[in-house]
Nucleic acid binder design. Sequence first.
RNA 1: CGGGAUGUGGCGCAGCUUGGUAGCGCGCUGCGUUCGGGACGCAGAGGUCGGGGGUUCAAAUCCCCCCAUCCCGACCA
Length: 567
Amino acid sequence: MRWSKLFVPTLRDAPADAEAASHKLLVRGGFMRQLHAGHYSMLTLGMRVHSKVAAIVRAEMDAIGAQEFQLPTMHPMGLWHKSGRSELMGDEMFRLADRKGTELALGVTEEEVFTTLALELSSYKQLPQHWYQIHTKFRDEPRPKSGLLRVREFTMKDSYSFDLDEAGLDASFDLHYDAYVRIFTRLGLSAMPVEASSGSMGGTESIEFMVPSPAGEDDVVRCPSCDYAANLERSVSVIPTVVDEAGPDAPVRFATPGVRTIAALEEIDGGAPAERQIKTMVMVLDDEVTLALLRGDHQLNLQKLQDATGAAEVRAATPEEALAAMGANPGSLGAVGVELRVIADPALAGRTNMTTGANDDDWHLRGVDVGRDISVSEFAELRDVSVGEGCPKCGTPVEIVRCIESGHIFKLGRKFTEAFDAKVLDPNGKAQHMIMGSYGIGIDRAVATIVETYHDDRGIVWPVAVAPFEAVITIASMKDEAGVAAAEKIYADLGAAGVDVVIDDRKARAGVKFADAELVGIPFRITIGKALADGEVEVTRRAGQITERVAVDSAVSWVVDAVQAAR
RNA sequence: CGGGAUGUGGCGCAGCUUGGUAGCGCGCUGCGUUCGGGACGCAGAGGUCGGGGGUUCAAAUCCCCCCAUCCCGACCA
């Protein structure tokens, strides 16, 4: 390609509303432009990177025997009613109607459509089937942000496996796991597999591939000395046991005027340290008012509560709802004698002589024995893990790392095959619902994640495998006829050698060309200018900005070798 | 959904307090000089001042409503 013909609108200043490095650099480098919130136009440079990322994903999916499909993105709403996900997705789904009034939806994922196709599978002999596509998805995110990292319209590689039984699913899952490891390695991303919540979709095993980055939105709990890693919403930790003193035979009411917080209850006469308090949170789970109990110094993780209960919607009760259900205002609530469903964190199991609200404003109870005084419906992990708590595997203090979720694989189970009645005959001639796995990688998010990982103060530093061009030939002066001729020769030879090369033949000053090449992030640059007098050109590696001079005649082989070594 | 901020030429911004008919830097076009790290001079092009309504002789500026975008939080197969 000739840069003089390309549309690469680089900017000296980043748009004022860009925060994330990838957002700024992809816009400044002329890779993309925002159309509106959460929707980006990919320009030619962006599309080149996008295509290269997609090609790597495609190659690795093909390598495990997966078959590429392309499904509609606009679906009849009936499909989503059938799977029960219309309600589940709620406002996250873009919904529309056609001229006849037929309800339609834009695909958030494609389990429904793939499962519809799987109805044509009839025998276990056809299994496993691994089907995938690389296609547009829509999610009406409440808050698009950070450029490509969180958008409403995006490209995702989504694949689905169909197996006869759990053993088959395990094998399909492992194939994908290995493919994902290879994909992220090729993309240059150090993605770590972590245990994750499979969310409201159920399913058993769920693994997210997480790339550490301050631009991320997920917290991963990781052990520095063993292989334990889990999404915060799935993590557990070991904490020291609190030894309780013996308490009274029954809870004792005591006045706590004005006390509304854990901290205030620690301070007041007759109060208790936070770890000796029971925090009572009034939650609404699919319209059922429920109490979530935690140790006073612990934080509730909503996703854990959702996972533990299987509720589709989990939210905190409003103060009015809490008052109606408990007879007191938040700050004075407790579970003693309450008839509602009560879910308690295991850190409260067996605890005695604790302090909690009395369900009477300005009153609390002390001497509360969890087993004796509270009818706990169930115990479930509800609390957030904190830095420094013990690794559940080896006890080492854990750390928490901010990450970008780059991939997610999980065992879906039979939810969809049962909803759509997708069955095959097993070896005994008996019809069985197939079991599914679901696997996703966001292509655009991967592009942004690569930029987050690989940039410096001059611009992007693309890994060769995904760079918009592998090499750029920079002609210092277009008036230098010998230079132009030498550059054209190298350009032709590199092209013939299969290198993805662009020649910067713009009538611009050298400084402009250097700055653009660096901002855009092309891995190798051949500069043809003053060195030519000595029969040489300069070759520069973008990573580290290392320049050396080589003979004109060996420039092509130098670049070919460098590119091949890095591909 | 709660809190905060912003909307003026392609990008970055000033002007608004105190109304008088729009300006700066970058970019863009032409000519000249320059030519290895985002050159310089001269001459130009380009703006419904987010939208609607109102006040006023007069609104980018004051008032009301709406919209959009960004940030923090909530939420997020």
